[in-house]
Structures are given as C-alpha cells and as structure tokens.
Amino acid sequence: MTKDILITGVGGQGTVLASKIIAASAMAEGNIVHSAETIGMAQRGGPVTSHVRIGDEAFSPLIPFGKADVILGFEPSEVVRNINYLAPGGLAIVNTTAVKPVTESLSRSGYDGSEMIEYLKNHVRCIFVDGDRECTKLGSAKFLNIILLGVACGSKELGISKETMLEETGKRVPAKFKEANLKAFQAGFEIGEQVFNIPPRDL
C-alpha cells in the first residue's frame, strides 16, 4: 500500500499522538512507514504538521506538494495553510472549530475560521467535523485527536482497518482513559462512515 497522510493543527492539539497511532497501525498491518514531526519552538502555539508516509517508495520524509491522499486537519486555517499538499481528488478531514491565535485577540482581526471553511468547501473534497460539539458530547476537549482519527478510519481513506487502529489507540492512551478514548474513536468512525462515499469534486 502507498498512502501519504498529512496531519495538521496548532501546537498542543494532540497531532503527534494521532500521527503515531496512524504510523503504528499501518506498520501493524505490515507496511513500511516513515513519518516526520514539527518539534521545538513552534510547538508553543505555532502551526504544526506531521507527515506520515506509508510504502517503500517514499524517500523524502516530507510529503511533496500534491501527493497527500488525506489531510487530517485539527484547525480550519491550518488545513488551508497546507492545502498544496493535497493530491487532486484527495480528502481533507476538517475540524471546524477555529483556534484563534493570541495575536488575533490583541488586534481583533476577526478570524473565526468561517472564511477557511468556505474556501475548503469550494475547492476540495472535505469531511467537516464539529470538534467542539463532539468533544462536549464526550465531556472533554482532550478527545479531539482520537475523534478525528476515528473519522479518518471511518472514511476508509487511510486503508487501515478499524480493528488495528482501535488496538493501537488503546495501547497509546492512558489506561484510565482507554474506554473513553475508544468511545471517542467510535463516535468519529460513525461520522466518517456516513460520508465516506461522497464523490470526488471536480476542481
């Protein structure tokens, strides 16, 4: 299998764990995997990306532009920032809840994510997830990454089975929150499943 998955968000949203679970799941199913993370100063509230490359023909640790099969987006503007990575016909999974940068609160530029969502709707194939609402249902904002993983798995675009991903998720979350996380995964999975057969949009 060859798959390129870009995970993007803001430092502190849990993108690294999501990328580790995808990488571990793909490996558990016998694939060769490489990935790359943003580490360092940018982790303090800056834009972060993880590149997961599945398959033995991936030489560059970073996905080239136009090659990502899936963008797993934790924040609308961060998906737009990385939109050039998406392959023609690729899928963007987008959390619609915007993370306002501190600079926005200082200057009142009015960023709320809506312009980004509108742009994405008109340009690429998307699944929108109301992360705020889904997290509230589950009782904590900490489940966002696992919900989005569930959506990605439910969309069938990762090429990894639900069983494998559940198992690898279970191994990587704190034991006392395991059940809650598996529930979050399932909630996301159902969202992804409902929309997995939306047709590729003509660009």
Partner: peptide, 19 residues
C-alpha cells in the same frame, strides 16, 4: 499543471508564544 494553489484566503499568523 495546477500543482500549486495560489488563491488561498489570508491566513492568521501563529507566532510561538509562552504557554
């Protein structure tokens, strides 16, 4: 062709900040 999209809306800046 069409390898890079250039008409994207202005993006919010996210400079790193103290936690």
């Amino acid at each position: 062709e069409n390898s890079v999209t250039e008409d994207i809306p202005p993006l919010p800046a996210r400079p790193p900040v103290l936690c």
